[in-house]
Design a binder for these strands. Structure first.
Lengths: 335, 335
DNA sequence: GTGAAAGCGCTAACAT
DNA sequence: ATGTTAGCGCTTTCAC
């Protein structure tokens, strides 16, 4: 609720002895106003504590107001995975000085609670960037129905979802990692995957499979994680149980890779001498880790920037094409 | 930008063969509409893909639209400290189903970049909850100038800042911790403080001092941290250098306490046998830690809920009084 | 350079 | 139960 009796532009104009139009011009820094009038209006604004009514302004300018960053994950997850903070930072950075709010909307959407869906349907925002979409999430359907301009950051798993997205070539990224391990001489190479109901998890796994097949290596040393450290540690333990003489490991996130290194240490295996480890993300954790992580770059900031750009264009009524960024491997100490 | 030529309520009404008012009633679930009319309007809404113009609605209802959670900390910090995720969760929970957005605004405000100030001055939100305010932050001044309804979560350090706040009695909380250590038999008790330019950091330190003085113990075993794990580890190392036979430690945050336990382990000192450790926050880390942390409860969710309540009332033009919640000690294994 | 006037899309009296 | 009407506060032609 706006403070009662908040002064309006009318009040400011009256106080400054000018018309509403002139007052509006001053407030909006229109150059064609006499110095005297400008001063009078500025003074009136200060004295009255005038603040423009955003709704009124927006009603006439038809400008966008806010976009949502939608993350269908629990808030613990959102706040513990650097991927999300990176994304949010990227989005706010890309929105920059546009007079637009970035609203973070998070929560598992399918745990019976339809809060997220209600929010999206409520028309509270002018657009949405959806991050971390899962196979069974029906968010894309909700978004299609409401016709809310939206862009996925990370290709949605469902093939029917014909929505704009920006993705990175996760398959190629994982292939880079796998080839690096093979080139190093690894032969019993395992992988700790991400969730397979997400395109990123699925694609990184498949990229790994493809390269190992080409090299004539076994592709069954697979354990599924969930991108988190805890999940990665557990998957690594299972992997070590199945194959104690593992000599190479590709983890689909840096958090899992770091956890894997920890587990390998517990099992008495040295990294990279006994087991070479490659992560994914090139997050801060990769450089902090000991040994420092060899990892695949996930250009989060760039993806976020592209997503914002796409979204702005969708909101403008433009037709846009999906974009897929390429990626790189950063070689450090762990492999 | 709203999609061009977005259908208006007028269009819906025309299509359904009713008046704008009736259409509005249906959209807003007003009960006094005939079933037939309701169906016709609903159909028209669906066919046209109508979405209410929020600005127009807001202009007439004069309802609040969004509140900001303002955190004058770097985004890394915001996303790594569970205190902030807890707060954000608390705020969104308390806002509940009110049709109001919660916008997270973060960033160090004084690094020459005035983004936060500009944002707040821009009148983008109807109210603000300020978290983690530092002594030299002049946010309260900005908020006072703009007359933006705001509530501090955690008492602002500056005494001139006559703003509503909700706080917890940090002094009493720290006293609980110190008394517990003394009762356990500790005599060389140190503390790793939070930042002293924050009321929480300062008060927890002072609460510790007061109790130790009353007990006739030395109060100079103080090292300053910043609530983070890294800062806590460093401060603990300094403390151990100064006093290798430390037998009790109060850390002003769980993150620092966990880090301290790690450092104590490195130094070959067992917790709680050699050194008893008490943390602050009762965060998830406290239960996960080994040994599990004895810690002071920081009722984050409750504070957030109170802050939202206060803010709503301030936005309603009401005068409100600061609130200070009490706290408790949870005894686990570390002390 | 400035003012008068026309709406933006919606809700909420007020009539019927 | 429904339609008519009057704004909400602002920006923006269009005259002057």
């Amino acid at each position: 609720m706006v403070a009662r009796n908040a002064p309006t532009l009318e009040d400011v104009a009256a106080r400054a002895g000018v018309s509403r139009a002139t007052a509006s011009r001053v407030v909006n820094a229109d150059p064609r106003v006499r110095e005297a009038a400008r001063l009078a209006v500025s003074a009136a604004v200060a004295e009255l504590g005038y603040r423009p009514n955003r709704a009124a302004r927006r009603l006439v300018t038809r400008a966008a107001d806010s976009i949502a960053v939608v993350v269908p994950e629990s808030d613990e997850r959102v706040f513990s995975d650097p991927f999300f903070s990176g994304t949010l930072r990227g989005v706010t950075g890309a929105v920059g000085d546009l007079p637009m709010q970035v609203v973070l909307v998070m929560g598992k959407p399918d745990d019976g609670d339809r809060r997220m869906e209600r929010y999206l349907r409520g028309g509270h925002t002018d657009g949405a960037i959806v991050v971390s979409h899962h196979q069974n999430d029906t968010l894309w359907r909700v978004l299609a129905e409401t016709r809310l301009p939206s862009v996925f950051l990370g290709r949605p798993y469902a093939e029917e979802a014909r929505v704009p997205y920006v993705d990175v070539d996760n398959c190629a990224g994982a292939a880079l990692a796998a080839r690096h391990l093979i080139a190093r001489g690894c032969r019993r190479i395992g992988t700790v995957t991400g969730p397979l109901d997400m395109s990123a998890g699925h694609d990184r796994w498949q990229g790994w499979v493809r390269v190992l097949e080409e090299a004539g290596l076994e592709t069954d040393l697979v354990e599924h994680g969930d991108f988190t450290a805890a999940g990665g540690a557990e998957a690594t333990r299972r992997l070590l149980e199945r194959c104690p003489d593992l000599d190479g490991l590709f983890a689909a996130s840096d958090q899992m890779a770091v956890a894997a290194i920890g587990e390998l240490g517990v099992a008495g295996r040295r990294v990279p001498d006994d087991v070479a480890v490659v992560g994914y993300d090139d997050s801060e954790a990769a450089t902090m880790s000991r040994p420092a992580l060899t990892t695949v770059v996930n250009p989060i900031a760039e993806m976020a920037a592209r997503a914002v750009d796409l979204l702005l264009r969708v909101m403008d009524g433009e037709e846009v094409q999906p974009e897929t960024l390429s990626t790189d491997l950063v070689v450090r100490e762990s492999a």
